[in-house]
Design a protein around this nucleic acid. Structure first.
Lengths: 209, 209
DNA sequence: ATACAACCTGACCAAGCGGTCAACTAAAAT
DNA sequence: ATTTTAGTTGACCGCTTGGTCAGGTTGTAT
């Protein structure tokens, strides 16, 4: 209710509708995959006529590309938590926390990303080859520095990163399987236990505790 | 060449064509997802006319269901490697080996399974609730036994299982990402290193070494 | 008040989809 | 040799899809 009757300004309309569409698209792409998603369904979820989607996004693929790139930005932002840490316990611990929180708060985004990569990354191959490759190389060097300083065991940094990604994203991508086995969504304390379990196992696994 | 001209017997024809179709379907479903896959494309990959697929499988969904259930059987078989082990080092070590080998040899199957679960398991929900649930409960009890016997640290068995699944399947499901970062497919020795890394980190992570 | 540009949308379209079927060939049973 | 059954396939069908567009509405600049 409130002042909903005030006519919206142009900027607001565009911003609001694009956000609405992107939000609906993320959900539908996550649930059905790119091929299974339909513009009609996205439109219904967004509460807009289908033709309106094509006013803001010229094609299904462009809309999808926008969704994926938004997710990637969230990821990159979370990655910063690993920097400026005195050692692996703080750095990797914070990174696990951040990524687990993303799995909890943005499971749809995680699924879209997973789906995209699983199908050969037809849309974001360039991201993988540039931004992600650079990021990975940088963090691997960071980890190697901790190893050289005797702060953790001599594990392969690349495979450690893969394990971090795998273990944390699993709670989003395979959330349905976990919920089924758990007999329902994870509670607040179960999420805490999940985080702790992942952190304890990995940090001990790399000899950092 | 050889004796390819000998007329095939009925049994052979059926067996051969069903295998051909299932193989092609697994590949196409893995690459495009259920919604993105088309019967025509599966037919092309199998080298058969589309109408022939519908002679052996009444619908796209039935074909898909068969593919998924085949994968599940492979998984259950690999799960046996965890049994009859004197302790976590042997049991979990063997399980990691088995699952890493599956990721390497059957990446398409793993992707189809992941895709199915990610999209809410519309087809195999009953598997999750019966077979998988029972299997998980059994292995969690086995792990708890090892903990009680002082053979490993007191970690949450469920989250350990999730980590095992996540870490091993990642090499199949996100194989494309890994290959991109690696600058090409993993070599024989890189696969060995991957296996060792996962095993060392997890076994140390659960205090079993 | 008027002109302009941005926004909106029902109706429509060509293309591709899963699935069907009748006519055919080849193996097996009689 | 003949009948029956299993396997094969091009042509076809109804339906849904992503995408278009003409004509209308609404905010904004003059």
């Amino acid at each position: 209710m409130s002042e909903a009757l005030r006519p919206l300004r142009r900027n607001e309309i565009r911003q609001q509708n694009e956000a609405l569409i992107l939000q609906a698209a993320e959900k539908v792409f996550a649930e059905a995959g790119f091929g299974g998603a339909t513009m009609q369904l996205i439109a219904d979820v967004a509460g807009l006529p289908k033709a309106n989607l094509h006013y803001y996004f010229t094609s299904k693929e462009e809309l999808y590309r926008k969704v994926v790139s938004n997710i990637f930005d969230i990821w990159l932002h979370a990655a910063e938590s690993m920097d400026n840490a005195p050692g692996p316990v703080e750095g990797i611990g914070a990174y696990i926390d951040a990524k687990m929180e993303i799995s909890r708060r943005h499971p749809d985004g995680s699924k879209v990303w997973a789906s995209e990569v699983m199908h050969g990354a037809p849309v974001i191959q360039d991201y993988l080859e540039t931004t992600l490759r650079d990021w990975t190389a940088g963090r691997a060097a960071l980890i190697q520095g901790w190893i050289d300083a005797g702060q953790m065991a001599a594990v392969n940094p690349d495979h450690l990163l893969y394990m971090l990604w795998a273990a944390t994203q699993h709670y989003a991508d395979f959330g349905h399987q976990i919920e089924t086995l758990n007999g329902g969504p994870l509670t607040e304390s179960q999420w805490r236990e999940a985080k702790d379990s992942v952190k304890v196992m990995i940090l001990r696994g790399i000899g950092a505790v």
